[in-house]
């Protein structure tokens, strides 16, 4: 669906129009977190419905996006809870079973063959739009289960205990998946961002 074009309107966009324009933005993050188009569309619909049914709850119109993303995150947590086991059941066993640690290059005695690269100052802010796009691409390339669990920690900001509780997942299972997700993400960022000296 193409979002309607309000740019030619002379009057300022109405509350409904502003909400409607943020639909693709919300859908992008719902998809990234849920890795299931139907679930993602449902959560965005519920978010928009909630927003439009109580516009009085939104008092400060300069932060519409913040407000909507806040609602979306709650709806996404509801969806993850609802789908429980499906969230951490893999459709690609091989992909989920490989330990990326083994691919990092260790000698038989456990030493690094080559030292991990210097990525520069960790405190230096990597707040460029380019970095965020690469980060999102790398997260979307994680196997679905790893991607969901990783973003529950990093985007929804749930504790490991909360993730296990919401999904009915054992801590051991969670830690195995997060270990793989973090190492895969590291590899992807090393290749596409930190290792690329040509970046501006």
């Amino acid at each position: 669906m193409t979002p309607p074009d309000f740019t030619s309107a002379t009057e300022p966009a109405s509350f409904e129009q502003q909400v409607a324009l943020l639909q693709p933005y919300l859908l992008k993050f719902a998809r990234l977190q849920l890795r299931n188009d139907a679930w993602a569309e449902d959560t965005v619909s519920e978010t928009l419905l909630a927003a439009l049914s109580k516009p009085q709850a939104f008092s400060n119109r300069s932060q519409l996006k913040t407000w909507l993303v806040g609602i979306l995150k709650h709806k996404i947590i509801d969806a993850l809870r609802l789908h429980g086991r499906e969230v951490f059941q893999s459709d690609n066993e091989v992909d989920e079973r490989e330990d990326p640690l083994d691919a990092m290059g260790f000698k038989p005695d456990g030493h690094y063959i080559e030292a991990p690269a210097q990525w520069g100052n960790p405190e230096q802010h990597s707040s460029s739009k380019q970095f965020f796009e690469i980060l999102e691409a790398c997260v979307s390339q994680l196997p679905a289960v790893q991607g969901r669990l990783f973003l529950m920690r990093e985007w929804l900001e749930l504790s490991s205990d909360e993730v296990c509780k919401e999904l009915g997942l054992t801590p051991t299972n969670l830690y195995v998946q997060l270990h793989r997700a973090r190492l895969r993400l590291r590899e992807c960022l090393a290749l596409n961002w930190y290792g690329n000296t040509a970046r501006s």
Binding site: P116, Q118, P122, R182
Partner: peptide, 28 residues
């Protein structure tokens, strides 16, 4: 160890990067 502190800094860099991203996605 002379090698592992590099990995420690990589993890810290990623943690900071994720935080920046989270703020970017969530705020106006």
């Amino acid at each position: 160890c002379k090698d592992c502190p590099n990995f420690e800094r990589q993890m810290l860099t990623m943690r900071n990067g994720m935080k920046e991203w989270r703020n970017y996605t969530t705020r106006d």
